[in-house]
């Protein structure tokens, strides 16, 4: 059938022998990225811009 997967030798790993430690490692990396982005968001949202909602009100009040 021409699948590349065919050429690799396989060892059967059952339910009890399988410990998905690599999955844990990958998910920890993902969460580390999420936390880093979450911290970064503070700089984008609050330091890069004026406050979003109140910023719109002040000039109107100023006009009146």
């Amino acid at each position: 059938m021409g699948q590349a997967t065919d050429t690799v030798e396989r060892t059967e790993i059952g339910h009890d022998e399988f410990d998905p430690i690599g999955t844990l490692a990958l998910i920890m990396v993902y969460f580390a990225i999420l936390v880093a982005l979450w911290l970064f968001m503070y700089f984008v949202e609050f330091l890069g811009n004026d406050p979003t909602v109140t910023g719109a009100v002040v000039p109107v009040v100023g006009l009146i």
């Binding site: 690799v8 030798e9 396989r10 060892t11 790993i13 399988f18 690599g22 990958l26």
Partner: peptide, 17 residues
């Protein structure tokens, strides 16, 4: 990801990454 890892281990993959 755990299912993919199962495939990789059966194909002889090792280590955390």
């Amino acid at each position: 990801v755990a299912s993919m890892e199962h495939g990789a281990r059966q194909r002889g993959g090792e280590g955390y990454f």
